[in-house]
């Protein structure tokens, strides 16, 4: 428990270590720590900015989506309209065609009927002539009674 030269030795060592710490230890570590602090602060700020940007982008995306939906529904609507129109047109065309076919068929039928009628008429005339010939006994002159026969045929 004696006070002796150890005290002086310790003082010298103390001074040396403090100077060493002051020169070679403290400044680089504290500088690195300060730099890291700044980096982290910058990073946090950037993250904040990014999240803000994300928010904006989300809003934009929602807006775009809405627009796109509207556009799409417009397109669908017009397509539907157009389809209806096409169907209507087709319907009209089909009706016209049907009408036309019907008309031509009717005309044909009429024609056929007329032809059949003419044929029938001429056959009836011939038959009635033959009948009359048979009744009158070939006395009737074909030429002389042609008028009469035609008249008769036309009445059929």
């Amino acid at each position: 428990m004696n006070i002796n030269l150890t005290l002086i030795g310790q003082m010298i060592a103390f001074v040396c270590f403090v100077l060493f710490c002051m020169k070679y230890v403290w400044p680089p570590i504290v500088a690195a720590m300060a730099e890291r602090e700044k980096k982290i602060a910058d990073g946090l700020a950037a993250a904040d900015r990014a999240s803000h940007d994300l928010e904006l982008a989300k809003e934009k995306a929602v807006e775009r989506l809405k627009e796109a939906k509207e556009e799409a529904s417009g397109i669908v609507e017009s397509a539907n309209k157009r389809a209806n129109q096409i169907v209507e047109e087709a319907k009209g065309a089909a009706l016209v065609e049907a009408e036309r076919v019907k008309a031509s068929a009717q005309a044909e039928i009429e024609q056929e009927t007329n032809r059949a009628r003419e044929q029938l008429r001429s056959q009836v005339a011939a038959l009635s002539l033959a009948g009359a010939e048979k009744v009158l006994g070939a006395a009737i002159d074909r030429e002389a009674h042609a008028d009469l026969v035609d008249k008769l045929a036309s009445e059929l």
């Binding site: 060493f20 070679y24 680089p28 890291r36």
Partner: peptide, 17 residues
Amino acid sequence: GILFCWLFRKVARNAES
């Protein structure tokens, strides 16, 4: 004391952010 200096100097030399 030297242990202290060595330890901290080692860290100080490789100090980075």
